[in-house]
């Protein structure tokens, strides 16, 4: 099946085709899922190189589990978000163990931003603030407010209740608001 005809196929169908040796399914899944996995890994880690490593490993695990994938049990993306979170947690745990002092402090003063870079600067500011959150709060906030998932799916990914998800996102947002309070004017919040 050509790649362009696979654009409408669900992830689960493509995964079955992949397990049957279909090369087009592999390319379609790579093109569809890698940017999503990469974006999520970066938001959890705040480091591009580490996010790439996590992305490659998560996708490799997806390829390996494909023949044993059980239809209807979980969405492929749900499974991937979970794997990414676990890999990021492992990576951060190892980093804390060996190089706690080497993690750079967030930049305090930033050069004034031009209008066309404003959104990018906001994204960077948010990432800096996200990096300061506890892992679980960061994961919940990113899944809810950036990936746009519903609380029940987040609960499944994080293996907690929906009430716990709500609690984590609420605390996370309070911390983000506090962290970004001093930068809203600088980053053009008043323009919105």
């Amino acid at each position: 099946m050509p790649l362009d005809t696979m654009s409408d196929e669900p992830d689960e169908v493509l995964l079955v085709l992949f397990a049957n040796g279909n090369a087009s399914a592999a390319r379609a899944l790579t093109a569809r899922l890698t940017p999503r996995v990469m974006g999520h890994a970066y938001r959890l880690l705040g480091n591009h190189a580490e996010a790439e490593d996590v992305t490659q490993e998560a996708m490799l695990r997806l390829w390996k589990i494909a023949p044993d994938w059980r239809q209807g049990e979980a969405k492929v993306t749900t499974w991937l978000y979970r794997v990414v979170a676990n890999l990021c947690t492992d990576l951060r745990r190892r980093a804390r163990g060996v190089a706690l002092d080497s993690i750079p402090e967030p930049e305090d003063g930033r050069a004034s931003v031009t209008d066309h870079m404003q959104a990018e600067a906001r994204a960077e500011a948010l990432q800096t603030a996200l990096d300061q959150l506890p892992d679980r709060q960061r994961q919940a906030v990113v899944l809810r407010h950036i990936e746009g998932l519903a609380n029940p799916e987040i609960a499944e990914i994080m293996d907690i209740t929906t009430e716990a998800v709500e609690s984590l996102t609420a605390r996370g947002k309070r911390a983000l608001t506090a962290a970004l309070a001093g930068r809203q004017e600088e980053l053009g919040y008043g323009d919105e």
């Binding site: 940017p35 974006g39 938001r43 404003q118 959104a119 990018e120 994204a123 948010l126 950036i146 746009g148």
Partner: peptide, 8 residues
């Protein structure tokens, strides 16, 4: 802003 500037 974060949604529009995802890491590629």
């Amino acid at each position: 802003a974060a949604r529009r500037h995802a890491a590629e």
